[in-house]
Nucleic acid binder design. Structure first.
Lengths: 129, 129
DNA sequence: CTGCATCCAACACGATACTG
DNA sequence: CAGTATCGTGTTGGATGCAG
């Protein structure tokens, strides 16, 4: 926790970004599937197979890994019902639900700027081609 | 835009997350340095060397790559002053500044939950060790 | 000072096969 | 159904050297 700066002059208050734990969140939000899984868990608890069907394209392996990481971070709870065949239910925890708000912002910003960004990329690519 | 769901019941409105462009933002926010660079650019324009000093640990290569990507997306502008030695100034564009708000949310959430998450990880690691 | 090119290690992810 | 184990691959990022 180096002292450094604590705010910026752009209207958006930004605290220390060096090693204050932002990386932790980035590691979750940055990977390929976490956001999608959380979105599918937002409406309510889901079973493993259910999730795999909802999150298009995810492999069994990656679904397992993603859920384990979320579980480890306390964002998702895992409940096993000792039936036959086994049945496991995943649900967002309190902390996990608070993340859906963040993800909403993320998606909103995406939607708001995707056109401008796409256009900028095209122009840049044309200019440098 | 597959039909699917359009909102969740958790209070946080989440639109389609499958392939509606969230990935684009994730690709920016997910990498190792973008967030840090944007934070350092938030207070005002910076030169290349300046940025490299401010963003602790970044290599010359990654700073260049990060800035190029941001430039391509129209989030950062690059101004060359034909002096000797050359001098290049980077600054956030309008769109880029709008992203600082998003990043603020990110950092806020990180700070708010880093303790709980860290604790959860320790417990999980101890439980599974 | 600014920036590109190259080599190289680490890791994320996908495909597949196998278990309780 | 709900996982685990293994292998192969692409990408990311760090180190280094060179150039305008």
């Amino acid at each position: 926790m180096s002292e450094g700066h604590t705010e910026v002059t752009t209207g958006a208050p930004v605290s220390c970004a060096e090693e204050c734990g932002v990386r932790d969140v980035q590691d979750r939000l940055g990977d390929k599937w976490t956001v999608h899984v959380v979105v599918e868990l937002a409406p309510g608890p889901r079973r493993f197979r259910e999730l795999q069907r909802l999150v298009t394209g995810i492999s069994q392996r990656m679904l397992t890994l993603t859920l384990r990481r979320l579980e480890r971070d306390g964002l998702v709870s895992r409940t096993v019902y000792p039936t036959t065949p086994p049945q496991v239910e995943y649900a967002l925890t309190e902390t996990g639900r608070s993340m859906t708000h963040l993800i909403s912002r993320l998606i909103d910003w995406s939607l708001d700027h995707r056109a401008v960004i796409a256009r900028s990329r095209e122009e840049w690519d044309a200019r440098t081609a």
